[in-house]
Amino acid sequence: MRVKQYSVLPGFGLTLGFTLVYLVLVALIPLSMLFFKTATMSWADFWQTMTSARTLAAFRLSFGASFVSALINAVFGLLVAWVLVRYDLPFKKIIDAFVDLPFALPTAVAGICLTAIYAPNGWIGKYLEPLGIKTAFSPLGITIALTFIGLPFVVRTVEPVLQDLDAEIEEAALSLGANRWQTFSRVIFPTLFPALLTGSAMAFARALGEYGSVVFISGNMPFKTEILPLIIMTKLEQYDYAGATAIASVMLVISFILLLLINTLHAWSRKFQEV
C-alpha cells in the first residue's frame, strides 16, 4: 500500500483511521453478514429460494416496474429540465424548488398520499375505475409510486448540463441550415444524453430498492404485486431468515453493480461535457 502524502496538513492518520473504523463498524460488518448468512445455506436451498415461482415473479415485477418508471422519468425529466431552464413561466423558482419534494418527503407519506389519490374511491382513481383501469393495488400503481420517487434524479442531472450548454453551437447549427428539430436531435440531445442516462440509471437503482412508497399502493399480493423488498419483509415475518438473506444478498450485488455503473456513467458524462 502506497501512501502519497505531500501535504503539510495534519490529521491524515486520525481522520482516515476514524473514517475506516466507522465505515467498517456501521456498514461493512453488517453488510458482510448477508454473505456469511447466505453461505450457511446449501446451494440447493439457495437455488430453490431464488428460482421459486414467487421470487421470480417479484424479480420480474421489480425490474419491469423500475425500468418503466425510469423510462417515464427520462422523458418527463428531460422535459421538466428543458422548460425550467429555457422558458419563462410564472412561479418558476418555486416549481423548481418543489422538484426535490420526493427526496425530502418520507416515503411512507408518499405511499399513503398516492394510495389515497389512486384508490378506487380516490381523487383520480374514481375516474379511472369506471374506465376499467385499475391503478392502486396493481403493477400500474407500483409504477406510479416509483415514478414519483425517481422524479428528481433526471431533472437534477440534466439541468446543469442544459444551463452550461453554449448558445454558439446552436447558432452554428442554425447558420449551417439546420432547422430547430434537427438542432435539437443532432446537436443538443447528444450533449445531454450522458447526463440523461446517468439520471435514469440513478432513478432505476433507487426504484429497485424502494419500499415505503410502494407497500401501501401495491396491495402486496403474491405473484401479482409483490416487489423484491416486500418479499424479503414477508420472509422475515415468517422467520425464514435464510430465504430473506439469500434474496437480499442477490439484491445487494445488483445494487453494487448499478452503483459502479452509475459512477462510470457519471465520469463519462463529465468527460463528454469537457470535450
Binding site: P30, L31, M33, L34, T107, A205, R206, L208, G209, E210, Y211, G212, L228, P229, L230, I232, M233, L236, A244, T245, A248, M251, L252, S255, F256, L258, L259
Partner: peptide, 11 residues
C-alpha cells in the same frame, strides 16, 4: 444510498 432500506434493517 443504493442498498434497499429493507436490507439495511435486515443486516
Amino acid at each position: 444510498f443504493t442498498v434497499s432500506p429493507v436490507i439495511s434493517g435486515l443486516v
